[in-house]
């Protein structure tokens, strides 16, 4: 078996045996379900907890199913990304710090196989979580609010998946660069959230940006998507992912000497 296969098997066993393969998708499914359910029961919940005078009639506009799906994505953008960062911050930095990497690095190890095995495994779990969460969320949305055009749903999911690939690449490159898991988390969170904040505040000036992919994903539901901006943003994201992976491989090789002996 080639090194990539051997190392991917190791990553698979790790994620299986520390239950990441189960708990991360479970959390995404929960988030996906709770959004439509809580939306649906919001009037009743407010009714039962709020001390409203007799006879008050609260009018809530029932959300469109598309809005519910976009709201699920909103949950993933905050809690979901945080979970990915916390789950994979130490995947390289932690191995170096604890010294478990030493026995790998002292062998004729291909660092591209090493980094890619981690990238592929984290990507599989992240995409599995996001898609299972979307599907579970859509099932509930469909039951409670109605259906969404299937193609638009797929476009929505695929566009968001591209953004998730970028997030995973950022986390892994940070883990390769930083001396420990905590700093890797801080750097990833900083890049992911601060850049989004900046893009949100000033982003009207540049329609082409990887950071706009989540917004573009939701735009599939509204017919208001400039295809040229969209494809340029996707291409830019793709290039960034490749760049981050190459940087990650080079840095993990360069910093191999910092593993604890």
């Amino acid at each position: 078996m080639n090194q990539f296969g051997v190392l991917l098997k190791k990553e698979w066993r790790e994620n299986l045996r520390n239950y990441k393969l189960f708990w991360i998708p479970a959390v995404f499914i929960l988030l996906g379900i709770m959004e439509p359910v809580s939306n649906y029961f919001l009037p009743q919940i407010l009714d039962s907890v709020g001390n409203l005078p007799e006879g008050t009639v609260l009018e809530f506009p029932e959300p469109e199913p598309e809005q519910v799906m976009a709201a699920i994505m909103g949950q993933y953008q905050l809690l979901g990304l945080l979970i990915f960062v916390l789950a994979y911050m130490g995947t390289i930095a932690g191995e170096r710090k604890s010294g478990t990497a030493t026995l790998l690095y002292a062998r004729p190890l291909s660092f591209s196989a090493y980094f890619m095995s981690k990238w592929v495994m984290a990507t599989i779990i992240a995409l599995l979580s996001v898609w299972l969460g979307f599907l579970a969320g859509y099932y509930y949305t469909y039951l409670l609010f109605g259906s969404i055009d299937f193609m638009n749903l797929m476009r929505f999911g695929l566009t968001y998946s591209f953004w998730i690939l970028l997030v995973i690449s950022i986390i892994l490159a940070a883990s390769a660069l930083m001396p420990n898991a905590g700093l890797a988390a801080a750097v990833s969170l900083g890049i992911i959230f601060i850049s989004q904040l900046v893009d949100g505040l000033l982003g009207t000036y540049w329609p082409i940006s990887p950071l706009k992919l989540p917004a573009y994903a939701a735009s599939w539901f509204e017919n208001g998507l400039d295809m040229s901006d969209f494809w340029w943003s996707v291409s830019l994201t793709f290039m960034l992912i490749v760049l981050l992976v190459v940087i990650g491989i080079l840095i993990s090789a360069k910093k191999a000497a910092s593993t604890k002996v």
Partner: peptide, 11 residues
């Protein structure tokens, strides 16, 4: 190579 304190993946 055997380091002084070899560390293994516990799983």
């Amino acid at each position: 190579f055997l380091p002084q304190y070899p560390q293994f993946f516990p799983w």
